[in-house]
Design a binder for these strands. Structure first.
Lengths: 345, 345
DNA sequence: CTGAAAGCGCTTACAG
DNA sequence: CTGAAAGCGCTTACAG
């Protein structure tokens, strides 16, 4: 089979009657090209369907066209969904994503990170929660003077631009929704104490209750760890109470799934006897029965934005001074499914 | 901050008193180097912690050091687990993985694949089921004369080396286990008809019953599609029967989760009144309650092996003549959890 | 078995 | 605003 030669920058230059340099400048958004030349070049680029050779570009330039993604928990569907989106965005932008797992945080993690910076020479880094709040890791990245973006960070909010959703508002609204549906006795399972979103969701829940002058007994509130087991323990405690709540809001879907199981053990039909709300809208939410009412996180959008910020030179301008570019709060939505019910009737 | 210069092949060559070429040969496993020279070079490589620059290598050589992964279903935890492992293995071998989604199979899919081959110039491809059985896709890859490995293929078994587990044997054994536990009335939910593993699992179930001379009424067997909804429909049908089974074996975990929900609706306690078995040991299996008894697929091992075969030059030797290298059947294991119970007592 | 030269396809740095 | 030269760090192809 004859192997088709890939179009090179030279081919474009020849056909457009300019030098390679000019083509290179056009492609790299260099300002110093006349509009006329730029258009001429772009026309040929499209005709020839030219796509720069990433390896040559990487070799010649100071940029590596690698981006790194650091994550903690490989099993979470949050992580894998984010990863898939990030991979897709990177490919579209001619970058490659290097993924590094940082669970079991230890000295090796830091060495692995340093290798990512020094050997792979990533141009930028994305940190998922909760690794994005680890001070030692942040310090290494800051020392290397590397651009990085954090997803839903909790601390050091001025250390880097970050992307998040309004966890507080989402929890507030979904709690409000339960109240609208007639619920007054609403239990809550708090998320993992290491994650900032846990506090935000908890506060949203509390404030929604307060704004309706609803008091909730302390036994209705349990600490969880974002996993199924902790959710089950918490739910068993709450549902063992003499005076049971009519609804339980769990800080993520995994724990909400556990609430479903606990309700089952207590022979409490969901949603007839107990409404259950989760958070995240992971795949689990529409896998278990009844399907969970939950809050959808814009995971794909977060990933795409992170890659976009890091790959487009925009990052250089970012600073605390430039607030608008610094903090990105994306929209969530509340998904009502079969696990909640209006009890005003 | 002073940027540390990366060690280059020249640095190694200089320190080892040989030419760059010799270092290159040692690193690329070229046979024609004396043992003495090889050792000398390797010693320096280790001392300097030299790691070749992938981009330079890629640019100079005919290999791209890119591997492609084609998958269908992005939401399956099977897919994401495979992906994560493959990513890890690739990085360890100096390769990069380009991931391409082929769901909604259409003309665009083929074009995207051609781009992967012609523009990205992948050195090899991994196909996940069921895309690995698509004849048009296979034809494109074969025409391009590209090495590829399929995971759990159903058809065209001689078209490429493949990796799988013994789905038949696993289904046989897990059904046997149910029989040992006293179950005689065992329902079954078949997997998606497009996937070869569905038939293998079904056959394993049938043969286990037959080997114990157990007859099962046809109403105990339902067709599913590997998703929750189809599993729910199937389970509702089976559990609506007057003479209910004491156990249901679903062809994957998602459908087994649905059986749990259906049992719940019929007020059948699991495992007291109904034992439930899944397949795959995805995260879901240990998330829902009760935790599922299921078959663990060696997903991580499959991914690592696929990358290993494609990245090590071994592939060139592979052919039908070399059977041992052609068909890789990895070990499974049966995981017993809380969804099954012995009823002989 | 080992090496000197050329080149992969880009960008950097310097000119004009 | 545009271009000619040099070089990124490797490997291929050719010598010896």
């Amino acid at each position: 089979m004859a192997i088709k030669k890939r179009t090179r920058i030279q081919d474009v230059a020849a056909k457009a009657n300019v030098s390679m340099m000019t083509v290179s400048r056009v492609l790299n958004q260099d300002a110093k090209v006349s509009d006329k030349t730029r258009e001429k070049v772009m026309k040929v680029v499209k005709e020839l369907n030219y796509r720069p050779n990433v390896s040559a570009r990487r070799l010649a330039s100071s940029k590596s066209f690698f981006l790194g993604l650091l994550y903690d928990n490989p099993s979470g569907s949050y992580t894998s969904q984010f990863l898939l989106s990030a991979l897709k965005s990177c490919r579209a932008k001619g970058y490659h994503l290097i993924v590094d797992e940082c669970s079991d945080y230890n000295q090796k993690t830091l060495e692995s990170l340093k290798e990512l910076i020094e050997v792979s020479r990533v141009d930028g880094l994305i940190l998922l929660p909760p690794i994005c709040d680890n001070p030692e890791i942040l310090q290494v990245i800051i020392d290397a003077n590397l651009p990085f973006i954090r997803i839903a960070p909790d601390t050091n909010l001025t250390a880097s631009p970050f992307i998040c959703m309004d966890d507080y508002q989402a929890a507030f609204e979904v709690t409000n929704r339960l109240i609208e549906q007639g619920h007054r006795k609403i239990g809550f399972i708090i998320g993992h104490p290491d994650q900032g979103v846990s506090r935000l969701r908890y506060q949203g829940y509390l404030d929604a209750l307060r704004s309706h002058r609803i008091n909730v007994p302390p036994e209705y509130i349990e600490q969880g760890l974002f996993d199924y087991k902790s959710g089950l323990d918490a739910a068993m405690n709450i549902l063992s109470l003499e005076d049971k709540p009519t609804a339980i809001f769990a800080s993520n879907d995994d724990m909400a799934a556990a609430v479903l199981s606990a309700a089952n053990r207590f022979k409490l039909d969901v949603p007839e006897k107990l409404s259950v709300v989760g958070f995240d809208d992971t795949q689990l939410a529409s896998t278990i029965w009844p399907h969970l009412t939950t809050v959808r996180q814009p995971i794909n959008e977060m990933a795409a934005l992170a890659i976009d910020l890091l790959s487009s030179g925009k990052f250089a301008d970012l600073s605390l001074a430039n607030k608008a570019q610094f903090r990105h709060v994306l929209d969530f939505s509340i998904i009502e499914r079969e696990s909640t019910q209006d009890i005003t009737a």
